[in-house]
């Protein structure tokens, strides 16, 4: 399980990365983060929404309320072109940190 601080710092690239696959809503974003991390990245779920709203304010994502087929009305978020560019920069920086650490430590899986 990663620390609260790291979870907060990584929330932005995680959300943006998930939205590269298409629009999505809060609950589903959390499920996908959980699946992709094998349960290692767990957020206090309510904290996702201020993050989403901040990203929207920065123009990286956009939202609209929509009713999925037969389902309940949900607020869907999608990536904007600015968001895509921002993710590219984020990605370069995270890869840089990752490479540096793996060079120093040698490759390890995140659960070890």
């Amino acid at each position: 399980m990663i620390s609260k601080e790291l979870a907060a710092a990584s929330s932005r690239p995680l959300v943006l990365s998930i939205l590269t696959r298409g629009e999505d809503y809060g609950y589903s974003i959390i499920q996908r983060v959980r699946e992709a991390s094998g349960g290692e990245v767990e957020w206090s779920e309510g904290m996702l929404y201020p993050v989403l709203h901040r990203l929207e304010r920065e123009g990286l994502i956009r939202s609209n309320w929509k009713q999925a087929d037969g389902g309940r009305r949900r607020k869907y978020y999608r990536l904007t072109p600015t968001g895509k560019r921002s993710l590219k920069v984020d990605r370069e920086q995270w890869v840089c940190v990752h490479k540096t650490l793996t060079r120093l430590w040698g490759a390890q899986s995140c659960s070890s």
């Binding site: 206090s44 779920e45 309510g46 904290m47 929404y49 201020p50 709203h53």
Partner: peptide, 11 residues
């Protein structure tokens, strides 16, 4: 989802 007060602080 977390306690209302904590979520409120983030908002």
């Amino acid at each position: 989802l977390g306690a209302a007060a904590a979520v409120g602080r983030e908002f």
